[in-house]
């Protein structure tokens, strides 16, 4: 990715194609019991070559197709021939979400912060090291900070934890913004005054040596 050509900063409409607007429209309109697109983790389960060769809104489309077929809401045959025969879903007391509800959802307070029931493991200014873990499932720890030391820059309280830890309950997790220097992450290629800030949870961090 480092070698890819940086794009021009495109201006104007964000969704440039009509199909992109349709994808965005149905994604945010489709709220059916038992249906989920699986979030970010589902995108990561896309075959890598397909992921890289699929445009942004195409990935959402792919995920929706996969989830809807897997959930039995639509069939491949119906998608291949939308004018052909199809089975009607039988979902008790269901009506599709109306415009008012959709717009109300967008304006909601969607904080990921939870009421803290455990104390934070770190405070602002602490020297920490990111645990060098490489889990098979979804994690929010970028590879480029694993094993590297940083400084806790900001404490956000307990935030909903986003990693896939399988069946393991890791309990409440405080979230921090951790600062890393460019040279620490990238060596001599980095400018000495570059800084990278990454959000990490208690689960990802350990105290740097010399601290208790």
């Amino acid at each position: 990715m480092d070698g890819f050509t940086l794009p021009e900063r495109d201006q104007g409409r964000v969704m440039k194609e009509e199909w992109e607007r349709l994808v965005w429209g149905f994604l945010r309109s489709l709220r059916v019991p038992g249906y989920s697109t699986g979030g970010r983790a589902a995108s990561e389960r896309m075959p890598p070559d397909l992921y890289l060769s699929t445009p942004y809104y195409g990935r959402f489309l792919y995920r929706a197709e996969q989830s809807l077929v897997a959930g039995g809401f639509v069939t491949e045959a119906e998608l291949a021939d939308p004018d052909g025969p199809m089975s009607m879903p039988d979902i008790p007391n269901f009506s599709p979400m109306g415009p008012e509800e959709a717009l109300a959802r967008f304006a909601r307070d969607t904080t990921a912060e939870l009421e803290a029931r455990v104390p934070p493991l770190f405070t602002v200014g602490d020297a920490v090291i990111v645990k060098n873990e490489h889990p098979a499932g979804h994690t929010r720890v970028p590879r480029y900070v694993r094993g590297h030391p940083g400084i806790v820059h900001r404490h956000h309280g307990v935030h909903k934890f986003q990693d896939d830890t399988g069946a393991r309950d890791v309990g409440q997790q405080h979230l921090y913004t951790v600062m890393f220097t460019g040279p620490e992450l990238w060596g001599s290629r980095a400018h000495p005054k570059d800084r990278v800030y990454v959000e990490l949870w208690d689960y990802h961090l350990k105290p740097a040596l010399g601290q208790d």
């Binding site: 199909w19 429209g25 149905f26 309109s29 809401f73 119906e78 998608l79």
Partner: peptide
């Protein structure tokens, strides 16, 4: 290809009454 696939999916979801086209317009 994406346009065809999107149109097909939206058409099927609409016919099955799983989405409301007016909601899609409002979202966009």
């Amino acid at each position: 290809d994406y346009a065809v696939r999107t149109k097909a999916l939206v058409s099927v979801l609409t016919k099955k009454n799983l989405i409301n086209p007016a909601t899609m317009d409002a979202v966009v």
